[in-house]
């Protein structure tokens, strides 16, 4: 009986502690900066075009082959009287979010820091009725960065981060 009494005391002590749960759909927890949802393309606000040049690095590195990339000549390049130094630019970009396994490899291989993982709640709450709606095109992928809704976190790779050395 003493053991059961002790168990009851444990439950009673837990009953007196403050709650640890959240009222989820109404209250969202703050996500850490490094949170990884799905990849997004970043927008170069200075020149007003995506950073992505369509170099296919991410497409080749993707373990699940969820990306399709097509590039084109940049109509805004300096040689044709534009302002951009990018000779090639992304033409079409699709990411199948239903296939993506959020491994972060596309971010690591990108030479232009043009892709980042969505670290906001908009990347997590993505339920749709039809899985075709999860294939994102270039416009859907760049909107959030274009309008400044996300503050992306691109890791510094292969080097010791001086700040975070404890």
């Amino acid at each position: 009986m003493r053991g059961i009494a002790k168990s009851m005391m444990t439950t009673l002590s837990v009953f007196l502690r403050p709650p640890v749960t959240r009222d989820y759909p109404n209250v969202h927890k703050a996500l850490p900066e490094r949170d990884r949802a799905f990849p997004l393309l970043l927008w170069d606000q200075e020149i007003d075009e995506p950073f992505c040049t369509g170099c296919h690095a991410c497409e080749r590195a993707c373990p699940v082959e969820c990306m399709t990339v097509l590039m084109k000549d940049n109509p805004n390049h300096k040689s044709v009287g534009g302002t951009s130094s990018r000779r090639k630019i992304i033409d079409k970009f699709w990411i199948d979010y239903a296939r993506c396994m959020r491994c972060n490899i596309c971010v690591e291989v990108c030479n232009f820091d043009a892709i980042a993982m969505n670290n906001t709640w908009s990347g997590h709450e993505m339920s749709v009725h039809d899985r075709k709606d999860l294939v994102m095109d270039l416009q859907q992928l760049t909107t959030q960065s274009h309008s400044g809704q996300i503050k992306e976190w691109v890791p510094v790779l292969g080097k010791a981060n001086e700040e975070s050395a404890s």
Binding site: R36, R102, C103, N104, E108, M117, P155, N161, S166
Partner: peptide, 21 residues
Amino acid sequence: SGDRMMYAYLRPGGLAWDVPT
């Protein structure tokens, strides 16, 4: 690591990136 279950944080040779401060 950024993820709750599928961390993909270790890399051959070390870690993907350093831990937070």
